[in-house]
């Protein structure tokens, strides 16, 4: 029996971690006597932002993390960030195969699967957002909290005053009025209790979560054929299942928020199109620029967009 050690980027309480632990349970059930995943913990075992380097160096064999945590080594992760497709679709059209190939080439990692896909981001605000004559979002009065994932969009397109804050400080910043708007995934606002201060959700949603499971390539190649097949098959099945499951969780969260008074403001027509186009285009520009600087170049750029964006 072979053993794979693993860590996850987020604390156990987060829904995304629970999904990964489900995957682990499934592998351990299917792989009895052949292969087992041994979870060593979350950010308390290896720091959140050090996990990608740890799996690259082989300190741990498997990591569940957003691609954005290793953006410096693999700017192509923005293809997943900007994607409007699910893992199952991109598994079918060869998109994930390409991403896997890039991971192997650039980082010596096997990209096992894109879990919890199909969840996007909204902009959430305290006060009713104002729209200009064209129906576009007016952010001039907003104190908007940003981070590295969406800053290209927020600052370059929206021209907002972005205040960079770690997730743990957002609650007290909202409480005191230091910020009054933030981007966040569709799921999780209730867990973070930010809904105590945020009253509006702006539609349409943009981007996608980019959580993936990566395995040290040397370790992966050292596993028996049988073990590899079990782990890979379970991962592919979990890609589809997790994304369906989170869809249901999102609907539940939205219903709960609306019952508690959360209002939805939807950008219409051209304004919505321009908003979404900017979110993707500004981020693609960033990806292309960074790809071009790397030794492998930006040859895969068009292909990536074709496979991850419809």
């Amino acid at each position: 029996q072979e053993t794979i050690t693993a860590v996850h980027a987020f604390p156990e309480s987060l829904i995304y971690t629970k999904s990964f632990l489900e995957f682990v349970d499934k592998v351990n059930a299917a792989g009895e006597g052949v292969v087992q995943i041994e979870v060593r913990g979350g950010p308390e075992a290896i720091g959140m932002f050090q996990q990608p380097d740890a799996v690259r160096d082989g300190v741990v064999d498997m990591v569940y993390t957003p691609g954005s945590f290793y953006a410096g080594a693999l700017p192509e992760k923005d293809a997943l960030v900007t994607s409007n497709m699910t893992a199952a679709e991109t598994r079918a059209n060869g998109g994930i195969e390409l991403i896997d190939q890039i991971h192997q080439e650039k980082m010596g990692l096997k990209y096992l699967g894109w879990f919890d896909s199909g969840v996007c981001y909204n902009l959430w605000t305290r006060n009713e957002p104002t729209l200009d004559d064209g129906g576009n979002l007016d952010v001039s009065g907003l104190k908007l909290r940003g981070n590295a994932v969406y800053n290209a969009f927020f600052t370059d397109y929206l021209g907002a005053q972005v205040i960079d804050l770690p997730t743990t400080e957002v609650y007290s910043a909202l409480e005191r009025g230091v910020v009054d708007a933030t981007g966040w995934t569709q799921i999780g606002l209730i867990d973070l209790k930010w809904n105590e201060f945020l009253n509006y959700r702006i539609e349409p949603c943009f981007f996608s979560t980019d959580l993936g499971t990566v395995v040290n390539l040397e370790k992966w190649n050292s596993l028996s054929e049988e073990a590899r097949t079990i782990v890979q098959d379970v991962a592919i099945a979990h890609e589809a299942e997790s994304s369906e499951k989170l869809g249901a969780v999102r609907d539940e969260d939205f219903a709960k928020l609306e019952a508690a008074g959360m209002k939805v403001v939807t950008l219409e027509g051209d304004a919505a199109d321009a908003y979404l186009a900017a979110a993707t285009q500004k981020t693609w520009d960033r990806m292309k620029g960074l790809m071009a600087e790397s030794p492998q170049g930006d040859g895969n750029y068009d292909k990536l967009i074709e496979l991850f964006y419809k």
Binding site: A71, G72, A73, N151
Partner: peptide, 14 residues
């Protein structure tokens, strides 16, 4: 050699 970048508000050579 890996051309590693530290990603925060900017992409900064590590």
């Amino acid at each position: 050699t890996r051309n590693d970048l530290d990603v925060r508000a900017y992409y900064f050579p590590k």
